[in-house]
Design a protein around this nucleic acid. Structure first.
Lengths: 213, 213
DNA sequence: GATATACGCTACGAGTCGTAGCGAAAGCTC
DNA sequence: GAGCTTTCGCTACGACTCGTAGCGTATATC
């Protein structure tokens, strides 16, 4: 995660954990106030009450710092059991939308993704710190639905994995696009319509062959 | 579209159209070579063979310039009649994915969206120049499917509009997320799976009520 | 021809970047 | 405790970018 690897258990003075949290918190605050492009390392350092050099000792630059600063926000997402697959899906959609309402999350997510198109290392960092961690929601939702008998248990492991990836891209992509690009509200009504579309599609996909008409 | 409004038909020397196209072309080239954050106005001016001041006379800044530079790329999207709704949908998904393979498109789109989260004017600019123009693809696809009898003609105008918006967000969002965030290929196989999901969902959504399993 | 605008060029202050060097502080090991 | 190691805050630095202003010149309309 960190730039320099003090690899734990080294000699000498350890890095201040307080400074770490102060910096990450200051980064989120700066994102809210300034946005991505106007956020500067100097400003973050000043807000956190640390020297600018301390930032550069831990993170290679703005990209890496911001990824770590917002990654924790996405871990707040949960999947409480609401009794049915439809309710579970709708719930997580609204949760994700609420997260994207937070300025630091919406700004940072898009910005680092944009930068990652030209930075392989940053892309893997984003995947590990943010994206892959949230696939647990899809897997957990499916597991519950299978236990309820709402979805069939899949025999083909790799096909099941591909389906999970597909669902993840559809859900996350649609919510992000609706919220940030189309700039329309992700409210209960939209979430319901979207869930109907998604679950209907899943049902059709698990059936043998779609008959036209 | 432009910063200063020469409102057409004014007196004095008109702005060079050649400079316009040279600047936009240089911007796309610079995006390919440098990416978003390292792209500078000075560099674009040098590539285009114009003075830096000429850029600032026409665009307020990097954001606005890049929006105009990449907007034209999205107008290349077409919807050739492939005979069925499924084929049409799959075709446009692959087209969109191919567009997002171009570095200038993928980098610029995400970056300007990120900036737009804190800039209302920029957001409307993006919507007018890029997003809203592409909804034509959804509307055209639906019109054809209705003529073929694949989709019912909707009585409620506003519900039909909401459905079109939903489809647009799902398609564009899923492709963008798959391609840029998950960083997995949008190939024929994925496009087929996604299309099955989408069309199955549409069929379910147009049916009266889903009966639980 | 008069007027009005666009253009290229140069220069400028302000701000940011990422790094280096320093002395001091804080922890770990013996 | 002594000694070593690493971190910390601070200052300064050259390089770069930003957006603007001023100037003389080019090119259009009236």
């Amino acid at each position: 995660m960190r730039r320099t690897p003090p690899c734990a258990g080294r000699k000498g003075r350890p890095r201040s954990a307080e400074a770490d949290t102060a910096i990450l918190e200051a980064t989120r605050a700066a994102l809210v106030d300034l946005g991505w492009s106007k956020l500067t390392m100097s400003d973050v350092a000043a807000r956190a009450g640390v020297a600018k050099t301390t930032l550069y000792r831990r993170w290679a630059g703005k990209n890496e710092l911001v990824v770590d600063a917002v990654a924790i926000l996405f871990d707040e997402l949960e999947l409480p059991d609401r009794g049915s697959l439809a309710e579970d899906a709708q719930g997580v959609v609204l949760q994700f939308a609420a997260l994207l309402e937070r300025p630091e999350a919406r700004t940072a997510l898009m910005a680092v993704v944009a930068e990652s198109t030209r930075d392989e290392a940053l892309r893997t960092r984003i995947r590990h710190a943010i994206v892959d961690r949230q696939k647990r929601l899809v897997l957990e939702g499916r597991r519950r639905a299978q236990e309820r008998g709402e979805l069939p248990r899949e025999a083909d492991e790799s096909a099941a994995s591909r389906t999970a990836d597909l669902i993840f891209d559809v859900v996350a992509g649609a919510v992000v696009h609706r919220s940030l690009v189309s700039a329309e509200p992700v409210d209960e009504e939209w979430a319901r319509s979207f869930t109907v579309l998604l679950l209907g599609g899943l049902a059709a996909a698990s059936r043998p062959a779609p008959s036209a008409g």
